[in-house]
Simulated scan of single mutants.
Amino acid sequence: MIEGYKIVQIPRISDERGNLSFAELGQLLTFVVKRVYWLYDIKEIRGAHAHKELQQFIFCTHGSVEFTLDDGQQRESVILDSPDKGLCITKPLWRELVSFQNDPQVIVLASDVYDEQDYIRSYKEFQKWMSIS
Rank of each mutant, 00 (worst) to 15 (best):
A48G: 01
V108G: 03
G72S: 03
S111F: 10
H51L: 14
I2W: 10
L29G: 00
V78K: 05
K91L: 13
W38Q: 03
Y119W: 11
V8H: 01
G47A: 11
E44W: 03
W38N: 01
L80F: 12
A23R: 00
D81T: 07
S111R: 02
I107L: 15
E44Q: 11
S82C: 14
I10N: 05
T90S: 14
E76A: 12
R121W: 05
Q127I: 15
R12V: 14
S99N: 12
G47Q: 10
N19W: 06
E66Q: 14
I10A: 06
E24T: 10
S64Q: 14
D103S: 13
I13R: 00
S99Y: 12
L109P: 11
I79T: 15
Q101R: 09
Q74W: 01
E96V: 06
P11A: 12
D112M: 15
S99Q: 12
H62Q: 13
R17W: 04
K124W: 05
D71P: 04
Y123G: 05
W94L: 09
Y123C: 10
R95P: 02
L39R: 02
E125G: 03
F59Y: 15
S64G: 09
V113M: 13
Q27T: 08
I79V: 15
L109V: 10
V113F: 15
L20M: 13
A110V: 12
T30R: 03
F100S: 06
S82E: 10
Q27D: 13
H49Y: 07
D15S: 05
Q127G: 00
I89S: 04
D15K: 02
R46C: 10
W129F: 14
F100Y: 08
D84Y: 14
I13A: 07
I45W: 02
C88R: 03
Y5W: 06
N102W: 04
H49I: 06
L87V: 10
K85G: 01
N102Y: 11
L87M: 06
E24W: 03
L28C: 01
A110D: 07
T68L: 14
L20W: 09
D103T: 10
M1P: 05
W94N: 05
H51W: 12
L39T: 01
D70C: 13
A110P: 08
L109Y: 14
A50S: 14
S122E: 15
K124Y: 09
D84F: 14
K128P: 00
G86C: 11
R121G: 03
D115G: 02
E44R: 06
